[in-house]
């Protein structure tokens, strides 16, 4: 595995714009930097421009203007060199369904100029690590949805890229397989590969990624560390399972309580507020709490706010 020792950023996206032939402006001057060794989340609602950005980085989409550099190599000017550094796991299945996983991986390595002997060793290694080795000689169309997703990850690893881009790799995959995929990708990242992840499972991004960019309507609306972003969340909502929720709930200073049904109460409160007051009031009122959890994933709550905020307030560009 190639270690990311240099200080050259893994990715520099510079004022990238893309307007499709039908006039749709998918990217409106996107700029961002990803440091080597980072686990970077690129989030955004459907149609925000994530896949267009990834398409440009992997040379499947031609940019209208701007450029991107992968470890200092321009995608526009030195495409072939830049592509050697990237591994891509696309959103849609894009392998020949009639070929065998082993052949798909070995051929992929061949396209990157990797000799067949080395390619066969790597195919065995990554198919094993992704628990697909027993299916290596079956036709790919016979694999389950989760296996097909894992096959695309194994295929993307064949050139042992310095930058691995995963476009919704866990879409439609059950939680057990998703976790095994997280484990694999985390291991790859720990070994030095820079990872860029797009996902609609925000819990996934929160657990795995250190830095994050949120893109909406072709603009980056947030680009910071995961820690700093999460610290912006000032209000949290807890769901409390109780043995019997009274129809008239007691008042707790600084909190808003809502009775959802006879066994569920929601409590919305500032993140700085201690929970002790809530339990004291509940205890006095004879309400017994059996369990509690966050209503939504913290990142999900922030994501929705940021995207909604962007839609309510016209961007500077639109105003100009």
């Amino acid at each position: 595995m190639v270690q990311s020792m240099s200080s050259t950023p893994a990715l520099v996206v510079d004022n990238l714009r893309k307007t499709y032939g039908n006039g749709v402006e998918a990217l409106k001057g996107v700029s961002l930097t990803v440091q080597p060794g980072d686990f970077f989340a690129l989030l955004g609602p459907n149609g925000a421009g994530k896949s267009t950005l990834i398409g440009i980085l992997s040379s499947l989409v031609n940019s209208t203007s701007g450029d991107a550099e992968v470890f200092g190599v321009s995608v526009n000017k030195r495409r072939n060199e830049a592509m050697k550094l990237i591994g891509l796991v696309p959103q849609e299945l894009n392998f020949n369904q009639f070929e065998k996983p082993f052949d798909i991986c070995v051929n992929e390595a061949g396209f990157y100029g990797i000799p067949r002997k080395i390619a066969a060793e790597r195919a065995e290694k990554y198919l094993n690590e992704l628990r697909l080795w027993d299916k290596a000689q079956h036709q790919a169309r016979m694999l389950s949805g989760g296996m097909k997703r894992r096959l695309m990850i194994a295929r993307a690893m064949m050139n042992e890229p310095r930058l691995l881009i995963l476009d919704e790799p866990t879409a439609g995959v059950d939680i057990e397989i998703r976790r095994s995929m997280w484990q694999f990708i985390s291991g790859i990242n720990a070994a030095g590969t820079t990872v860029i992840l797009t996902t609609h499972y925000l819990e996934e991004a929160e657990q795995l990624c250190r830095n994050i960019a949120i893109i909406d309507h072709g603009n980056i609306v947030e680009n910071t560390t995961m820690k700093r972003l999460l610290s912006k969340l000032d209000v949290e909502t807890f769901v409390l399972d109780v043995d019997n929720a009274p129809s008239h709930l007691p008042t707790v200073p600084g909190m808003t309580l809502r009775r959802m049904d006879e066994h569920t109460i929601e409590a919305e409160m500032p993140r700085t507020q201690a929970l002790n007051t809530l339990f004291e009031v509940f205890s006095t009122s004879g309400i017994s709490v059996t369990s509690m959890r966050n209503k939504t994933n913290r990142l999900e709550e922030l994501f929705v706010r940021l995207v909604e905020h962007g839609r309510q307030e016209p961007s500077k560009e639109k105003v100009a």
């Binding site: 592509m83 894009n94 396209f111 990157y112």
Partner: peptide
């Protein structure tokens, strides 16, 4: 065209080959 239709042509398009 089969490679285009199945999108497996992308395997070649994203690779460094000329």
């Amino acid at each position: 065209f089969g490679a285009k239709f199945q999108r497996s042509v992308e395997e070649m398009l994203v690779s460094p080959m000329s």
